[in-house]
Structure formats: C-alpha cells, structure tokens
C-alpha cells in the first residue's frame, strides 16, 4: 500500500458556500470518510482555515524569521486534505473522484515520496 494526499483545490477568489451548502458538504464528507474507513484506506482528513491565518517561518543565517500570512499569494490554495493508504493510483483516483463529488471542488491526487 502507498500513501496519497488528496488536497481540495480551493480558488482564492471563490465565494464561500452558504451555511446550508456547507452543511450538505460536511454531510457528504462525513459519509465519504465513513466509506474510506470501512474500505480500510483512510488515514487522516481535515479542513484548513483560510491562508491569511498562516504564519511562515524561514531560516535566515542563524536566525529564524517569522512572517505573517501565506508563503506566496496564489490563485488557489489547499482548503482541506485527506490522506489515504491505497494499493495503486487507480484506487487513489477512485477516492479522489468520490471526494470531488462530495465537496464540489477539484481534488489533486499526489503520491507521498515517503511516509512512516
């Protein structure tokens, strides 16, 4: 089995879903997570706060600089993520497809180079 990161590609200038839409999405996500757990592929899921809540740490000589905000301004950011443990890319793409259906946003499927 190999680990894959499924990230939710969120447009930076997109509108936030309404409370009602958000409720539907959360319901879909919970159902999908239950299916992933039942299939034995689920490792971790979470939704992220907006990029403007981020803090960046960067080495500068012997010091570490602290900066407010995201590393770079992007048109898209990772809005949430799921880590799965799947036998191959076809299996990972199956769960990626389910994920994009559940949240209504594009999903990037990317293999881990290494994982503990």
């Amino acid at each position: 089995m190999a680990h894959y990161l499924l990230s939710v590609v969120t447009p930076a200038d997109g509108e936030m879903p309404s409370d009602e839409e958000m409720q539907t999405i959360m319901g879909n996500v919970a159902e999908l997570q239950a299916d992933m757990q039942e299939a034995g592929v689920w490792v971790f899921s979470g939704g992220l706060e907006a990029p403007d809540t981020a803090t960046v740490l960067r080495r500068s000589g012997d010091d570490v600089l602290v900066t407010d905000g995201p590393f770079v301004e992007l048109k898209e950011y990772v809005g949430g993520l799921t880590i799965i443990d799947a036998p191959d890319l076809d299996a990972a793409l199956h769960w990626g497809r389910r994920s994009t259906e559940a949240v209504g946003l594009p999903i990037e499927v990317r293999p881990f180079h290494w994982a503990p």
Binding site: A2, P87, D88, L89, D90, A92, P111
Partner: peptide, 14 residues
C-alpha cells in the same frame, strides 16, 4: 513508478 500507475488490464466496468 512514483504514483503507482497499475500494470494491468482494467476491469470491464472501467
């Protein structure tokens, strides 16, 4: 190799 694209003929449904 990295993404583990499988080496097989897909199932009928796919």
């Amino acid at each position: 190799r990295a993404a583990r694209i499988p080496y097989r003929v897909p199932h009928d449904a796919d």
